[in-house]
Amino acid sequence: MLTFSLSLAFALVAAAFALSFYRLLAGPSAPDRILALDTLYINAIALLVLLGIGLASPIYFEAALLIALMGFVGTVALCKFLLRGDIIE
């Protein structure tokens, strides 16, 4: 039961990856691409958590936490760049 729903969940998250990736490539504007990148970060967290459950190993948690941290910092830096044309003031 759990194995089956895990495979289905993997498929759904992979489809989410593909959709976000399409938006990343298609644009059309810079904020759209940043939003797609941010969504990709969150999808990666979801994928790692699923992988952790599937392989019954708690190691992936740390990677998920790091991606959450770095993704947030990256998004904020890119937005700041769009707003001010400069990151470090």
């Binding site: 489809a15 989410a16 990856f17 969504t39 969150i42």
Partner: peptide
């Protein structure tokens, strides 16, 4: 997660 990306 999928629906969120679908909205995108």
């Amino acid at each position: 997660t999928f629906i969120g990306s679908l909205g995108l």
